[in-house]
Each structure stands twice: as C-alpha cells, then as structure tokens.
C-alpha cells in the first residue's frame, strides 16, 4: 500500500467540474488538494426553499457538502478505485443568510481498506463561523463512480 498510485488531482477536479448536477448548480472548485477540498456555490433565486425569507433549500447545502466530501475521499484512494457515499450527517448550527455565497470544506481524516472517513463544514465568509457541520463516510471500490482518467 506504500507505493499505491493516487489519482492526479487535476483529473479529479476536471471530472467533478463536468458532473451534471455540479454544473447545474454552478458549484465551483476553489481548492482541490490531497486530502482536503474547498467548493463554493453562489446564491441563486432557483435555490430558494422559502420565498418569503429568500432562504435556500437545505438540499443545496447537502449537495455542496456531499460533492466536496466525495472529492476529498477521491483524492486519497488508489487510482482506479470508485468512491460512493455510505452515509452523511448534517448539523445546522445556524441559519444560512439569504443572498450570500456558501463555501463547503471537507477533509479525509482516516482511511481503511474499504472506507474513507470525511468531516467538514459549510460557511459564508469565515470558516470560524460555520453554518453546517458535516461528517460522512465513503465506500471504496463499490458501485460508485470511477473517474475516466
């Protein structure tokens, strides 16, 4: 396992940028590093869950964090492996602000033969003030997608 070959980060980044739902929401990859990633989503009227308050639907944050978590997991698995979300949990620490972009950060903090463990959070302007805390686990080499790289 010491000599395992990892995916090239550039290829992973390009694969993620091409995924239909990532494109649809306009999720941007700010940082794609080995073991941790930072994604960004801008506010859009079509993301709204409550049109009276202008607050976005929780599904937007779930999609942002599942995406960045999967990206962080892919960054540390052997090239050729697939990665699929096994479970994830979101804790809503405070309400998102209407009209503001949201950053999603995730790091892979542990890996076994079969599972990558990931944690992260979402925030507006400061990582010190998270909106949502996030933990997830990803199965390696199951039926998940394997980037064509």
């Amino acid at each position: 396992m010491n000599s395992k070959k990892l995916y090239a980060l550039k290829s992973l980044k390009e694969t993620f940028e091409q995924l239909p739902q990532i494109r649809k929401l306009g999720i941007q990859i700010v940082e794609y590093e080995r073991g941790h990633c930072l994604f960004k989503i801008d506010y859009a009227l079509e993301f709204i869950g409550n049109r009276e308050t202008g607050l976005i639907h929780g599904g937007i944050i779930t999609t942002l964090l599942d995406s960045v978590g999967g990206a962080a997991a892919f960054s540390i698995v052997q090239e050729g492996s697939s990665v699929a979300t096994l479970d994830l949990r979101l804790d809503y620490l405070t309400q998102a602000e209407s009209g503001e972009p949201i950053m999603g950060f995730a790091e892979s903090y542990h890996q076994t033969r079969n599972v990558v463990f990931v944690r992260g959070y979402a925030y507006h302007h400061s990582a010190e003030k998270p909106i949502v805390n996030f933990v997830a686990s990803f199965m390696i080499g199951s039926v998940g997608f394997s980037p064509n790289v």
């Binding site: 779930t62 997608f145 394997s146």
Partner: peptide, 24 residues
C-alpha cells in the same frame, strides 16, 4: 432529470439531490 446526475458511470442521481428529496 438528466441534470440531477452526480455519477455518470452508473448513471446515478447525485447523493446531495437524494438527500434533498429525503429532507423535503
């Protein structure tokens, strides 16, 4: 919807959109 795809190999719905369905 084709735009809901998060995995083009299977293809499968993005896990975040599945999460959105469950929350909704």
């Amino acid at each position: 919807k084709p735009s809901n795809i998060g995995n083009t190999t299977i293809p499968a719905v993005h896990g975040g959109v599945v999460g959105a369905l469950l929350e909704h």
